[in-house]
Design a protein around this nucleic acid. Structure first.
Lengths: 168, 168
DNA sequence: TCTATATAGATGCATATGCATTGATCGTCA
DNA sequence: TGACGATCAATGCATATGCATCTATATAGA
């Protein structure tokens, strides 16, 4: 899943026919960097959480979404949209969060299939504790290494790799 | 494991004391983009491989390293260093690769504990077929969306987030 | 040489994930 | 209204991963 791609295959780049859509050396390098760096960063952040006796990053993502949603809560399918987790992963993650008392599942009035997930006080507290550690990781791993301008550049360029592209 | 971080907590950034190491809004945004985009890209590439009836990206990484190493092969612990996979993951991945005839395990003369992993002809062929698909994904997902200069900028900035930092 | 410690790699067990499918309800359309 | 396809969420089963530990060999030190 990582790095060191096929730079060799690109000797002829810029030459005539590229029927196999071989990526440019620049594209390969950027891809490789992106893969490796993102993995390293995730790993570092996960390690920090683990060292603090806290749950994995996935929990933070969900708790954060739910915290933003407030009292109204969110439906599970909305969480899958916002987080990129698969439906069954959200389903099971919510089961764990509920078991830990961090969220509660409420029936939803106008749709008998669904439920609304709402974060509990305990969940908010957990999110806060996770952010203390997670935020520190972000500051150390990213905030300290690049200037604000450079960070904006990274955001803008990565935004264009998104689906759908984002320019802000 | 993804996105939409705590932008709110950063209202006071730039103000006096930041004892909790709260990251800047720019850092948070860049981090969020990095997390989300890298996941999307990996997912797209994995999907493409799957659609082609090919093994996951992790296999490619290992096969690529072994292809570069050539006849001499590599020791498993060298693969763990180069790929960032955990030791037990390499151990099991190699078992699968061997079962598929893509690599072979050779005893190593001067260390009775170890083995040398060498890629087979079948393994080289598999790597090539995977690259056809993987390379195409890179071209489409990254190569087409940013200019060569922009790709270089991304590589350079991400390089500074690496451990250890890389400047090239 | 004998013992202790370190390193290479594999593995048992618990947990997590992917995939396919299910049960339940909803919305639409005849 | 009744039937049918779509959507929401959960789950059985197979596979993958994390963690701790194990075996075997190597290395260092008394």
């Amino acid at each position: 899943m990582i790095v060191k791609l096929d730079a060799s295959a690109s000797i002829f780049y810029g030459a005539a026919v590229t029927e196999k859509a071989t990526p440019s050396p620049q594209a390969i390098k950027a891809w490789a960097r992106l893969m490796r760096v993102s993995r390293q960063l995730v790993e570092s952040a996960e390690d920090a959480l683990k060292a603090g006796g806290l749950p994995p990053l996935a929990w933070y993502d969900v708790l954060h979404e739910l915290a933003e949603a407030g009292e109204a809560g969110l439906r599970p399918f909305q969480l899958t949209e916002r987080t990129l987790f698969a439906q069954y992963n959200i389903s099971r993650l919510l089961a764990r969060l509920e078991a830990d008392g961090l969220v509660e599942k409420l029936p939803v009035a106008d749709d008998g299939r669904g439920q609304t997930i709402r974060i509990t006080a305990k969940g908010l507290e957990m999110r806060r504790r996770m952010w203390d550690v997670y935020g520190r990781s972000i500051a150390e791993l990213v905030g300290v290494r690049l200037s604000p301008d450079e960070l904006n550049t990274v955001s803008a360029l990565l935004g264009r790799l998104r689906h759908p592209p984002a320019s802000d």
